[in-house]
Design a protein around this nucleic acid. Structure first.
Lengths: 84, 84
DNA sequence: TAGGTATTTAGATAAATATCTAAATAATAT
DNA sequence: ATATTATTTAGATATTTATCTAAATACCTA
C-alpha cells in the first residue's frame, strides 16, 4: 500500500499512467513527452514498475511499458472502506 | 489533486483517517494513539486539513477532528478514469 | 566487429518532508 | 491572578526524493 501511494504521489508519474492508459509506449517515447532527462523518467518508470502500476516488455532494443490497472483495486478498496 | 495524494502518502496520516472513520477524535487522543510527538501529529493533521480530508471543530480547550470523505471522490474518479 | 540507438545504473546535489524539543497561544480551574 | 491542560508554531536536523550528467549495458545493423 505504501509503495502504491508513493508511486502515485508525483505529477509526472500520474501523467505517465494517463498516457499509458491511451496506448503502450516505449521508455523513449514516454521520456520525449516530458521536459525531463531520460534517466529521470527511467527512474519514475522503475518506481511505477515496483508498485506494479506498469509492466515492461522488452522488444529488441526497446522496452515497451503498459499500464496495469489491477493493482489500483487496492487503492479503490482502501478509499471505499473510508467512505464506509 | 497534488495536495490530496501528498496527504495520503504517509502511513501515519492514513491511519489517522482510518481512526477518524470510526469516530471523531481530539488532537490529543489522536496523538496518544501514536508513538510520535504531539507537534508531529499536529503537523500531520494540518496536512490532512489543507487537503480537506479532515475538518476541525474547536470545542473549548479541545479541537475535535472529523473525517471528510467528500474530497475522496476526486481520487476515486481519477483512478476510475485510469481503469477506463 | 565497429558504430549507433535505447535504456538503465551510478553518483552527486538540491529540495521536500517527517521528526524532534522548546516556546507560544488559548482555554479551564483553583 | 496563577497554574494546568490542550494544541499549535518555530526552528533545527536527518532522511527521502527528484533531478542532473556521465558511464555502462544491451541490442541492432552494416
Amino acid at each position: 500500500m505504501n509503495y502504491l501511494f508513493k508511486a502515485l504521489n508525483d505529477e509526472t508519474r500520474r501523467q505517465i499512467l494517463e498516457m499509458l492508459k491511451e496506448k503502450d509506449m516505449t521508455a523513449g517515447d514516454i521520456a520525449d513527452a516530458f521536459n525531463i532527462s531520460k534517466p529521470s523518467i527511467s527512474h519514475h518508470l522503475d518506481i511505477l514498475k515496483r508498485a506494479d502500476l506498469v509492466s515492461a516488455q522488452k522488444e529488441g532494443q526497446f522496452i515497451t511499458y503498459s499500464l496495469n490497472t489491477t493493482i489500483l483495486e487496492d487503492v479503490l478498496k482502501w478509499i471505499l472502506t473510508l467512505k464506509k
